[in-house]
Amino acid sequence: MDWINIIVQGILIGGLYALFAAGLSLIFGVMRLVNIAHGDLIVLAAFLGLTVTASIGIHPLTALLIVVPIMAMVGYALQYLLLNRTMGDDILPPLLVTFGLSVIIQNALLEVYSADPQKLQSGPLETASISIGSINIGVLPLLMFVVAIAVIGGLQWLFYKTAIGRAFRATSDNADIAQLMGLNKAHVFGLAMALSLSVVAIAGIFLGMRTAFDPASGPARLIFGFEAVIIGGLGNLWGTLIGGVILGVAQGIGAKINPGWQLLAGHCAFLLVLAIRPKGLFPRVEH
């Protein structure tokens, strides 16, 4: 029974990892950009949530209404003013610029919020649980998982059923020709980053509700998100959910065997997938 419990918890935490991964996968899909500062932006969103909840005394979930638009605007501005200047055939500039950004964000957070671990207080939601047989399922992890499904479903719909999604795909296919059709590449990329950071905002708030975080927590979130993307298969949004679940379950099993092995087991699962299926378990099929 213990083991079933561990697997269920692992699956649910996988939802959070999928949220880390979805934003990363999205901007890679649209503009082949890998944002090294992705994890730090997640932590930035969590700290924003902390400031919002502390200053106006609202629930972290309500704070989403403020944090999501702020992060979306940050994303648009970041892309439009900075990252668009680095886009091109050379992969070095965007990589190094987002790496620099990562260091700047970490140290700015350290300066403003200190190195103390923080947590977003979500009241009764933290301890609420439902029992199915002998398995206890926390309401918060369950909510996280449901939100992850909703976010990925929403992104999927947006990508394949709306005009903006069409613009994303067209720009991703061929930015020059998309520009000929009246799509401003700089604007489309800005929107993609805004969308990515909206997802980052959701991920950050849930991260803060679930675990303690500090200014140095970012890189590990980037790595979890990245592992989920690769395990699931590049360019496949639903794949990120499966990747997140596999990562969560592997970590749970590792922790059960030896507490020191939690993260190690997750990384090993990733390396194993890389070794046997380098394109991930569910690579995108061109249609």
């Binding site: 900075l82 190094l96 610029v97 950004l101 260091v103 700047i104 140290n107 700015a108 300066e111």
Partner: peptide, 16 residues
């Protein structure tokens, strides 16, 4: 921390 932020900014400006 400001030292590291300055380093990050300088690197970004140079890269661009």
């Amino acid at each position: 921390t400001f030292y590291l932020m300055i380093l990050g900014v300088v690197a970004i400006v140079i890269m661009i």
